[in-house]
Design a protein around this nucleic acid. Sequence first.
DNA 1: AAAAACGACAACCGCCGAGAT
DNA 2: AATCTCGGCGGTTGTCGTTTT
Length: 248
Amino acid sequence: MRTPNGEIKVGLKKGAWDLEEDQKLISYINRYGIWNWSHMPKFAGLSRSGKSCRLRWMNYLKPDLKKGSFSKEEERSILLFHSILGNRWSAIASRLPGRSDNEIKNYWHTHLKKLLPNNPMPKKPTQNDMNVSSCFEAHNVEKIQEHVNHVNDIPNPLFSWTSEDDNSSSNSVPTPKGYGVEFIADHHDVSSPGTIEDLQCFWRQLCPFENLELGNIHQDMFSDNVYNDVIGPYSFHIDDYDTNPSRI
DNA sequence: AAAAACGACAACCGCCGAGAT
DNA sequence: AATCTCGGCGGTTGTCGTTTT
């Protein structure tokens, strides 16, 4: 069975991520960056779909994510932006540094929705709606907006929102900051999975006690098909990073 | 103390748009 | 122009911990 994009579904793990999986994903991304979510899990040694890996990274592992509960300022910002943008969580998240769209969405549904009178749920706004608050009186919006701008130095969406704001995708290579394992990529041009030897080196560093000879459970990582389809087109610069295992 | 209800949040699913072929 | 792949989005579900009965 395959997904529309060709991912093999059989045998893919679902459910909660464990520590080992997290570390594999973090280590891989820090070394090679994000180059292709659907192929990456295999190279990182994960029995997960690309989507699952992406979601885990975006919502939980990305180093610039804030942990912990929302501040009052963040609450106000969410209320304000939701009144303007509706359920466009990614657009709201792009205005709240360190918070993921999923986190904001959950927080909205569990904490903030109940605060609104009659729980109005703004629909996705049209262009004509962009200057109008659907939940707040205008003067309240202004008050909150003033506060939010002062606290977070966020551009005023009432006047600066454009359709380009929808491009809140975060497909960029993450900024390395400490989380669980040491971040080793110093932002050289590390955007490919490299050579077979490099991948084996990566795996020896990550799992020094695992048998990494071809023929083990990761054999298909180095199969001809994968090599030709995925590794082949990419260039690999051996000088781009340190391969000293002690750095992991 | 046990069961039921509830709340919080991580993760999945299906759809869609953009870009490539 | 049609099709395919990929990444992103929002709605929804599942799971687990906490609170209430």
